[in-house]
Design a protein around this nucleic acid. Structure first.
Ligand SMILES: [Mn+2]
Ligand SMILES: [Mn+2]
Ligand SMILES: [Zn+2]
Ligand SMILES: [Zn+2]
Lengths: 124, 124
DNA sequence: CAAGATAATAGTAATGATTACTATTATTTA
DNA sequence: TAAATAATAGTAATCATTACTATTATCTTG
């Protein structure tokens, strides 16, 4: 992976913002530094950075949000303002942490594990 | 909400399958019963059924999967075969349940809460 | 420091899932 | 039965993302 100023700038933007920006937001932001950058370049770099595990991607409401925080953490998504908050929870008491300490109201708990299932392991 | 045979058939398909089908899969399936049904009709009905809480929708890998199981449950997504398994976990020991009892290998834990955040509640 | 090798870019076209539109048809209600 | 209107089929439009291509920038190696 070579380092272009486009790639450096995109990575810098994601690393220095904690608002989980979308591709379009990043595109508008990087254009203030590199006005003639292509939207295709932004998407291509985002995919490369995700593939090389330099950033993370997560889909919220059908839109991909990018995350420069690589540490193991969870999120709270507000369906009203659309902010995707970082959470750092012990799994035992995460519900009371959110509702009592942070004061958020939980409408939905979206919990999903990804990995390789039992039957797929048998086949290898 | 009136009841057309298209709507009845779509709901029936989702309620009687536990494989979390996509819009396109449902479209192909319902076409065996109603050959000239429109893809637009499938999408329109899926949205209506979700809005009226008769089915649930969840996005996995950028594709929307529909779920006729309205009970509170979690999922295990296999990145190899793409199967989205239902889980019914007590939150205390869900990891050992998945790894030890079910034999799946967890690569990712995707945990997200949706609701109304503290600051949004203040404004109302 | 060249110079060749090739990864990355800008610009644009294509894709694919979903939504919008419109004239027609089916369902409900009285 | 007939008016009111929700739903439909078919198609066009949208929008995020990906693919393509000729050109440019970066890396490597002598
Ligand atoms: Mn985060
Ligand atoms: Mn399910
Ligand atoms: Zn909020
Ligand atoms: Zn599997």
């Amino acid at each position: 992976m070579r380092y272009s100023k486009q790639r450096k700038e995109i990575l810098e933007i994601i690393k220095t913002t904690n608002s989980h920006p979308t591709a379009d937001w990043i595109y508008e932001r990087v254009r203030t530094q590199i006005p003639n950058i292509s939207l295709g370049t932004v998407y291509r770099n985002l995919r490369q950075l995700v593939d090389n595990d330099l950033i993370h991607a997560r889909t919220v409401n059908g839109m991909v949000h990018y995350d420069g925080n690589l540490g193991d953490h969870q999120h709270f998504y507000c369906t009203d303002c659309g902010i995707l908050y970082d959470l750092d929870l012990s799994l035992e008491d995460f519900v009371s942490e959110i509702t009592e300490n942070l004061g958020h109201v939980i409408h939905e708990c979206d919990l999903q594990f990804n990995g390789i299932c039992n039957s797929c392991q048998q086949e290898q």
